[in-house]
Write a protein that binds this DNA or RNA. Structure first.
Lengths: 213, 213
DNA sequence: TAGATTGTTAATCGATTAACAATC
DNA sequence: TAGATTGTTAATCGATTAACAATC
C-alpha cells in the first residue's frame, strides 16, 4: 500500500462496489482479471478502474491484469471490513426486521450482536440468533457486547433521541434510515440511507422516457 | 419553468431530498423559506440550493425567499411524482415484504398495485390491500393493472430472468435491489439500489476514526 | 520478441464555491 | 429607503477521460 494514501471521495464511494464484485468474481474461481473485464461487469470504464486502484497501491501486473484475491483483500482492508465491527439494530419495524434478516453482515466483516425495541410483544423475541433487548438496557448491552455501529430503523420522531442515546453510550458509527437530518457529535460517523430516493429517480427518468399522455 | 431545462445530474440526485424536506417544511406550516434556512435543514450550502433551483425556474422572491408550496409542486413535477405510477413488487422475501409495508408509495406519487412470488405459501396472501399473485400471471396482471414500474427483490440468481420478463411485458422502469449487474433494453430506466454499500461506508469512516487496536 | 495491459501524466469536463448585481 | 435574499456570472476545485510510456 502507498505511504501517503489519498483516496478521493468518488473512489471511496466505488470501493464497496468493487469489493462486492471482486467477491463474486473470486467465487467463480477467477484468479486474474483485467480492468477491461472488471469494467464490463460493473459498468465502469477500465480507465476509471485503473485510476481508482492506482490511488491506493500497485496491485496489477502490466500486460497481465489484477490478482483478484490480493485486490479483494486490499479493498476490504481499506474499507475496514477486517475489523469485525459489532452491530446493533434499533427499531424492529418492517425495515429493521428485514435488515436483520436480509443483510449479509458477516460478508461485510460485521456481526449483528444486538437488536432493540420498546414494544412488549417484540422484546424477548428471537431474530436469527439474537434475542431482542428492551431499549432501556441500551447502555448496558452496548458495553457488554462491545457494539461499534448502530443502525437506526425507528420512526423519524424518535431518531434524534435514539442517536443521542447511542452516541452518549460511546457509539462512533451510525447507519441511519430515518428521513430527517440527525445531528451527531464531532468524531462520530453518520451515513444516511434514504430508500425513497431511488424510486423518485425511476420516476424522473421514466417521466422523460414516457411523455405525458 | 424555463424553456430549455438542462438539469445537471448532480442536481437531479438532490431533487428527491429537496422534495422530501420541503414536504416536511410544508407540513410544519411554513409558507416561505430562504435558501439559508433550507440549507441548514438539509445540510447543503445556500449557494448550492439557489443554483439548483435556478436551473429549472425562478421560484424565489429576492429579499424574501422561496414559496414552499409552489416550489414543492414544481420539484414534484420535475420528478414526475404527479404521474401516478403503478408499482409491482416482484419477490416477497424479507426485503420485498418490508418495502411493501414500509415505503410510502402514495407520498411519492406511486400506487403499489401488484406483488408477485412463486412460493405456494405466499401466493394468495394479502399484504396491505394487495393479494400476492403468482409470477406465472405476470404479463396478464401487468396489462390489467397498467403497471409502470417493477421493483426487483428476488435473489440475484433470478434477477435477470425477472427483469427480462418485466421488460418483455412492457415495463419501462425498474428499481432493482439485486446485487448483480442486470441488463435492460434500450429505453428502459434502471435504478440499482445496494443496501450493503452504506454499511461499508460506515466501516470505512469508522476505521479512520478508530485506529487499529 | 510481440502483444497485452497496467500506471501515470495531461486534457477535458462538470460541479461547487465565491462574489455581487438585481430587486423585492 | 435600507435590509435581505435571490439569480447569475466568474473562479476554483475535483473527477473523468484520453493518451501513452513502462513493463510483464
Amino acid at each position: 500500500m502507498k505511504d501517503n494514501i489519498v483516496i478521493s471521495k468518488a473512489t471511496i464511494d466505488r470501493l464497496p462496489l468493487y469489493f462486492r464484485t471482486l467477491k463474486q468474481v473470486e467465487e467463480e474461481g477467477v484468479i486474474i482479471i483485467s480492468s477491461e473485464e472488471l469494467g464490463r461487469r460493473i459498468g465502469i470504464t477500465p480507465e476509471q478502474i485503473r485510476k481508482d486502484f492506482a490511488s491506493f497501491g500497485e496491485f496489477g501486473k502490466k500486460g497481465v491484469g489484477y490478482f483478484v484475491r490480493e485486490l479483494l483483500r486490499n479493498v476490504g482492508e481499506i474499507l475496514g471490513l477486517h475489523r469485525n465491527w459489532n452491530i446493533a439494530i434499533v427499531g424492529v419495524g418492517h425495515l429493521g426486521w428485514a435488515l436483520a434478516n436480509y443483510i449479509n453482515f458477516e460478508g461485510l466483516g460485521c456481526n449483528l450482536q444486538a437488536i432493540f425495541d420498546i414494544a412488549p410483544h417484540i422484546v424477548g423475541r428471537q431474530i436469527k440468533d439474537i434475542v431482542v433487548d428492551h431499549f432501556d438496557n441500551l447502555e448496558a448491552v452496548i458495553k457488554e457486547r462491545h457494539i461499534h455501529i448502530g443502525v437506526i430503523t425507528v420512526p423519524n420522531s424518535q431518531a434524534q433521541a435514539v442517536v443521542d442515546r447511542l452516541t452518549a453510550a460511546g457509539i462512533k458509527g451510525i447507519w441511519n434510515f430515518a428521513t430527517i437530518k440527525v445531528h451527531v457529535p464531532e468524531g462520530t460517523c453518520l451515513v444516511n440511507e434514504d430508500l425513497s430516493m431511488g424510486l423518485s429517480s425511476v420516476s424522473y427518468y421514466l417521466t422523460r422516457q414516457l411523455p405525458e399522455k
